[in-house]
């Protein structure tokens, strides 16, 4: 049986505020799904109902077909999760905290020992395994929490913005860890508002806004079906570049949808078409006397879709 999570009419209201509105979402199979949405969209609320931290006003959530609300122990037995930034009892060491977690999951002592060493090394906390957690920074605690989520080698991994509280290096490391988690028979469901993280790690995305699911599809389909077909690139010059020179340089190129200036040395160009067309634009800009020093894509296709879908919601 392949791992799955399933929300059936999942709804959460806090008094008159509807945080999640009849979410119906079924994710099945070994894959990594990015759960996207702006702040307040209902991402964490959804994940908390999948882990029984809060209770649905209506509907139900399932992990591997088991209702979290009716049998949380059974449902969560196949799941490793990291919701918000949990705290560990401060006098315990990471090794002890993971021992407790493993023992509560029913792992054998030798299995706990070997997995603890493996996952703490994986999150780069091996050297701190014997130190009290109370002395750790937020980022270090988050690494230990991630290790605890992975300890039992779970079939379903639910992560709520796992790189929260980490420095840029830590974020990159977490991204690499999550990528490494993708394996046969494991479903990773990860909320994030860092789009580059989702593009880098996930196979599919679900976009939530104001408690409603806007779409759930593969990254490729999202870009093809929902994207405008255009992409945005940024070009930077060594010295100020004249408008007239730019206009002359880019005129007649059908792949250029439009351009705008960010500063006297920087411009943003919206392009469509294939990479061959993009190469021509680079050649034209490089021939300008101001000296082209960089040319890079500023937004991913997912970012374009995200911004468009969320702004549609705002309207």
């Amino acid at each position: 049986m392949s791992p799955s999570i399933h929300a059936v009419d999942l709804t959460k209201r806090f008094n008159s505020f509807t945080a999640l509105d009849h979410l119906n979402l079924q994710v099945e199979g070994a894959k990594c799904v990015g759960f996207l949405g702006p702040n307040g969209a209902g991402k964490t609320t959804t994940l908390k109902m999948f882990t029984d931290l809060i209770f649905p006003t209506e509907g139900e959530s399932f992990i591997n077909g088991v209702s979290v609300q009716k049998d949380r122990k059974r449902a969560l037995s196949v799941c490793g999760d990291l919701i918000e930034t949990p705290e560990i009892y401060p006098s315990l060491t990471p090794r002890e905290a993971l021992e407790m977690s493993g023992a509560l999951r029913g792992m054998r002592p030798e299995e706990i020992r070997s997995r603890t060493t493996t996952v703490l090394e994986e999150v780069k906390m091996g050297d701190w395994a014997g130190q009290k957690v109370g002395r750790f920074s937020k980022g270090m605690k988050q690494r230990v929490n991630l290790a605890a989520a992975l300890l039992s080698d779970p079939e379903v991994v639910i992560l709520d913005e796992p790189s929260t509280g980490l420095d840029p290096r830590g974020m990159a490391e977490v991204r690499a860890i999550v990528k490494g988690l993708k394996k046969e028979n494991r479903l990773i469901f990860m909320s994030s508002h860092i789009l580059s993280e989702v593009v880098d790690v996930c196979d599919e995305v679900a976009l939530l806004d104001r408690g409603k699911l806007l779409f759930y599809d593969t990254l490729a389909n999202v870009s093809q079906r929902l994207g405008t077909g255009s992409r945005t690139v940024e070009a930077e010059f060594a010295s100020p570049v004249e408008d007239d020179a730019l206009r002359a340089s880019l005129s007649g190129l059908s792949q250029v949808v439009g351009w705008s200036r960010s500063s006297d040395r920087r411009i943003t160009v919206e392009l469509r078409g294939d990479l061959g067309g993009q190469a021509t634009v680079v050649q034209r800009l490089a021939s300008l006397p101001s000296g082209l020093v960089s040319f890079h894509q500023s937004r991913s296709a997912l970012e374009e879709v995200y911004l468009r879908e969320i702004s549609v919601g705002d309207a």
Binding site: M1, S4, H6, V8, D9, N24, L25, Q26, V27, E28, E60, F62, N64, G65, V66, S67, R74, V78, A206, L213, F215, Y216, D217, T218, N221
Partner: peptide, 14 residues
């Protein structure tokens, strides 16, 4: 894909 307007029947228990 994977979502629908109406309720989805619960999966088969594991």
């Amino acid at each position: 894909s994977g979502s629908s307007a109406g309720p989805i029947p619960a999966s088969t228990p594991a």
